[in-house]
Computed example of a mutant assay.
Amino acid sequence: MVKHDGNQAPAYEEEEEEERVWSWGAGTDGQLGTAKLQDEHLPQLLSLTSLASISMLACGGAHVIALTSGGKVLTWGRGNSGQLGHGDILNTCLPKPVSFFDDYVITQASAGWSHSGFVSDSGCLFTCGSGSFGQLGHGDNMSQTSPVKVSYFVDKSVKMVACGMRHSLVLFAGNQVCGFGSGKRGQLGVSSDRTKSVNLPCVVSGLEDVEVVRIAANGDHSAAISADGQLFSWGRGFCGGPDIQTPQCLPSSQSFREVALGWNHALLLTVDGEVLKLGNTLNKQSEKQPLQVDSSEALLEKVPDFDEVKVLQIAVGAEHSAAVTESGEIKTWGWGEHGQLGLGSSNDQTSPQLVSLGNSDLRTKEMKVYCGSGFTYAVRRKQQLSSSPTST
């Protein structure tokens, strides 16, 4: 940055903003990438030696997947089921390249509780980790310590994978959605309510005529967003409501562009930058009041404290939430036991609170936030800046 005195505003000349990555929350399995096996209640700035040019992160139960702009894959955190894809069942407290993908370009990934999914630029799907419920889609209940190609999708051009607690969703060519893994709460979206689990992909019922552009999974919930901004959800009912066996369209006049699922709640982001919620952000048993409703409409609420503030992105962990505003600020709320809110304590918060990232410059507004079950990541991406000197 160009130095300036107190009488002159800063000047910038085609300056490249530095990429930065922070993590906080539960860290005892190495998922924070700090090389320390401990929780962190405040954002920790990470070394970017191995995390340069991040294109996306995926955070799971206690592991993290990072994709670089060149399509390479790094993973770290809990590896007890092989979910890191390194060929072993060891935890890794620092980002480590997944050598299996050295000859592939990976464009999208998702992290479940103890399994992982990866999509290549050629439309292939690879999975690894726990397969005890069939969530890897290989036709068995075996776990895999290295990524294995899911043969069902070899000629189907996969667009996106979403990993939940013990199930997986896949969006592929023709805007079709498949599910596999645990289905006891209806999260696979098949018509039979007797389906406890499947280990091969099965087509989700009721979306055949819907142009699906995004899918999401977490806990025992599943969701999809259509090209015209409608939200479809299925699986475990929110707020004690009945489980939903096949996708149901949320009756709303709003148009949605993003959905993030937790264990007991969901966040929805409208095309206008408003944030709405379904269910309970804090699932305290003493406060939990089952609602007898016929649709999700009665459960849809606007998140407080975002009036006249446009939100660009949302993320959800097990029971905490995060959002990035138009000004580049990150706000968090919900469960805070492990410090996953990044506010310096383990207190819960019922409304969005501003997370301080130290002296980070937010002029780029290129902030992204990602939530694992009990931890959070923030990424400020590189961006070219250009402006002229200005005198006061």
Rank of each mutant, 00 (worst) to 15 (best):
M1H: 11
K3F: 03
D5K: 03
N7V: 12
Q8E: 13
A9F: 14
P10A: 11
P10K: 09
E14L: 12
E15S: 10
E15H: 08
E16N: 06
V21I: 14
G30C: 07
Q31I: 02
L32R: 05
T34P: 13
K36T: 02
L37E: 06
Q38R: 15
D39L: 12
H41D: 11
L42I: 10
P43D: 00
L46C: 14
S53Y: 01
M56R: 09
A66M: 11
G70D: 12
G71P: 06
K72Y: 03
V73T: 10
T75R: 07
G79K: 02
G79D: 03
Q83V: 02
L84P: 02
G87V: 10
G87M: 11
C93D: 13
S99E: 15
D103F: 06
V105P: 00
T107H: 01
A109E: 01
A111N: 03
W113D: 13
S116A: 15
S120N: 02
S120A: 04
D121C: 12
F126E: 02
F126Q: 02
T127N: 15
C128F: 06
G131N: 11
H138W: 09
Q144V: 04
T145W: 01
S146R: 10
P147M: 01
V148Y: 01
S151T: 13
S157R: 14
K159A: 14
M160W: 03
G164S: 09
F172M: 07
Q176E: 14
F180G: 00
G183H: 06
K184S: 14
R185A: 13
D193H: 14
K196W: 15
S197G: 02
V203C: 10
S205E: 13
L207H: 09
D209C: 08
V212C: 15
R214G: 00
N218W: 13
A224M: 06
S233C: 15
S233Y: 07
G240P: 09
I244F: 01
I244A: 01
P247K: 08
S252D: 07
S253L: 09
Q254N: 12
W263Q: 05
W263V: 00
L269M: 11
D272S: 14
G273S: 04
V275C: 09
K277N: 00
N280A: 05
N280C: 10
T281V: 07
L282K: 01
Q285K: 12
E287I: 04
P290H: 05
L291A: 07
S295W: 07
E297D: 09
P304D: 03
P304F: 00
Q313K: 05
A315W: 09
E329Y: 03
I330N: 10
W335G: 04
G336C: 13
H338F: 12
G339E: 13
Q340V: 00
P352A: 08
L354D: 07
S356A: 02
S360T: 09
L362C: 12
L362E: 06
T364R: 04
K368H: 11
V369W: 04
V369T: 08
G372C: 06
Q384C: 13
L385E: 04
S388A: 09
T390F: 09
T392A: 10
